[in-house]
Structure formats: C-alpha cells, structure tokens
Nucleic acid binder design. Sequence first.
DNA 1: GTCTATAAAGGGATAGAC
DNA 2: GTCTATCCCTTTATAGAC
Lengths: 194, 194
Amino acid sequence: MARTQGSKAVITGPLVRDAARSLFARHGYSAVSMRQIAAQVGVQVGTLYAYTPDKQALLADLLRGHMQDLLAAWQDDPARPALERLHSFLRFHIATSIERPEAVFLSYMELRSLTPENRRQIATLRRRYEEALETILAAGVAEGTMHIPDLRLATMALIAMLTGVVNWYRDGGRLDQERVVAIYWELVRGAVGA
Amino acid sequence: MARTQGSKAVITGPLVRDAARSLFARHGYSAVSMRQIAAQVGVQVGTLYAYTPDKQALLADLLRGHMQDLLAAWQDDPARPALERLHSFLRFHIATSIERPEAVFLSYMELRSLTPENRRQIATLRRRYEEALETILAAGVAEGTMHIPDLRLATMALIAMLTGVVNWYRDGGRLDQERVVAIYWELVRGAVGA
DNA sequence: GTCTATAAAGGGATAGAC
DNA sequence: GTCTATCCCTTTATAGAC
C-alpha cells in the first residue's frame, strides 16, 4: 500500500502501542484510560480509534505480538547437550526481561484482563513458550545430566523464578545483565540437579 | 464495646472483606466496582461505606492484614540448622499459598494499586518477610551448608519461584500439598547448593 | 490523519430516611 | 445497619467537521 507523503500513520501507530504498553505495565490495564494514552502520545482521544478498534484489542495485540516475537526469536538445537540448551534459554529469557521489561511484565500480569477468547489464544502461545523449556528439561533427564522430581512443576518453578527478574532489575543497578545471568545460572543448575 | 443484639456488624464486616479479596484477586483492583462488591455481599452500595472509608482503604487493609498475619505466624529458630529452617520456610510459604491463595496473589499483584503512602507501608512489611528468608540463607552460607552466589538475588529468585505456586495450584489437582512441598524442596535444596 | 463534540453507561462517594 | 436516591465525574466509543 502506497504511503501518502507526510502521513504520520507509520509513526503514530507504534507510538500508540508504546504508550499503551508503558502505561498498562505501570498502572495496570483497567486503571489506564484511553485519555491517558492519548495524552502520552500527544493526540486527542478520538485519534486512537484510527489505530485500534478498542482498548481490549490494544492489549491483546501487545500480548500477542510479544509472545510471537519471543517464539520467533527463540532458537533451540535439540542436538546440543541439554545443559547448554538450558543455559541458552536462561540467557534468552533474562535478556528479554531486561531489554523489554514492560512487555514481559504485561504478558504475565494482564492475561486476566483479556476477554475469554483473547485469553485462550494468548495462553496457547504462552504454553508453547513453557514447553520450550520443558522440552529441554526432559532431554536433560533422558541424558542423565539433570535430576528433576517433576517435569511440569520444575518448568513452572523455573519460569516463575526467571520472570521475577522484571520485578527488581533496574538499568544501572548493582548487577549488569551478564552477572545476573551468571548468578541465575548457578541457581538453576543446582535446581535441576546438575 | 457491647454488641447490639441482632447486629450484623460482626458478620457483614468480614463478608465485605471476603468479597473484596475474592473480586480483587480475580479481576484486579481497578476492574472491580464497589457495586460489584456490594452485590457479592448481598447489600446495597451505600452500606459498604459503613465498613470502609473508601475503596483504597479496603485494598490497603487486606494487604496489610495479610502481611501482618504472615509475619506473626512465621516462627523461626536461629539455633536450628539452616537447611531445616529453610525447609520450614518453604513449608510455611507453600501452605499459605494453598490455604489463602487470594490473599497471597493480591499481595504481590496489587502493590501498584496502592497510594504511595500505603505502598510504602506495605512494602516495608513485605521486605521484612523477604528478610526472614535472606537471614536463613545467610546462616546457611556461614555454616557452610549452602553455597549461594548472591544473597539478595537468591532471595528474590526463591521467593518468586515459591510464590508462583498460586498461579497453577488447584485443590483436587494432580498433586497435593505434601507432594508439592517435596518437589519444591528438591529444587530449592539444589538451588542453594546443598 | 486528527480534531471537537457528544452520546450512553458506569464509576466513587454522600445524604437522609427508616 | 441498611436502603434509596442522587450528585458529579470519568469512562469508552462514535459521528462528523476540517
């Protein structure tokens, strides 16, 4: 589709998403009004509806987009040793948590703000992400390099532990990304009995 | 204070808190209206204001009450071996997560819905709870029975991991409380290098 | 593409009767 | 202790001008 010269569609669209992501993450979906989003973008409320059919779609698009990005970016290699794969997963998850904290935070906090249909859809993507980890743990057990009492629980426990990073990590804080990864790797390696 | 015969104050008060806790946990503070709470209790909206000055105080009281209950119920004995103390903490935290899932869920999800003053106050209680765990980990390191790369991070990681239980545990599900504790204990013991 | 204006509904909170 | 009625404000979303 040709772009009208001087059109701001290509810029306002992302701005709306950015503002929504930031405000939803900070205050929660229900606590944020379309007026607040508009104010942050620098437009009037009515304008938002040129970019989203409604508020709910705005949230659903953010979560779906994030989960799809995650799944597309994650590269696993079943041929490698399970411990190496686990280390890669940990790096990947923490890197994402640090680079896109708002999207990560939103994706696990605001599932309940979705309509049932949207929630089903995004919960499916989320489950696929959890399965990426569970697959690695299963491989480790099969290899004999990991000792895990319950695959499903270990997966949930590790995901919860890793996702917690968004609750305290701050740029310029005591620890940089590399050190956080190193510390979590030691904890995770121990947890999986390696 | 004498109780008027036939007074329902002693019953309606708790009912309001129960309804608010349940609805806030399910839908989020901002998404719940005073009218919804009243409907769940079985009274009209105006009645709620005989039991709380406003909606914000209702949330703050729930969170403060829960954190105070937690801190009052937790019994630690610095004389015992650190690993035993850690096991007790794990049992305590998981038992609470299973017995009062709504309060636990609320307390880590809705801190951001508090006014700054309320948030400060409850964050302080929360930090005291985290310190209960951190103290045990420090003792384990001093004893030489635990090997932990970073005390603060390990504390945050373990709390996040344990609190995640409320996200998937269901009564009558695949695992009962005892088995959940056993599985998490294996994971945690490994994570702390024991 | 963005604005203004407005409709229609629902929000928190209070007053006063019973 | 509870209800009814109401105030006043904000909400989402739409229509139509520019």
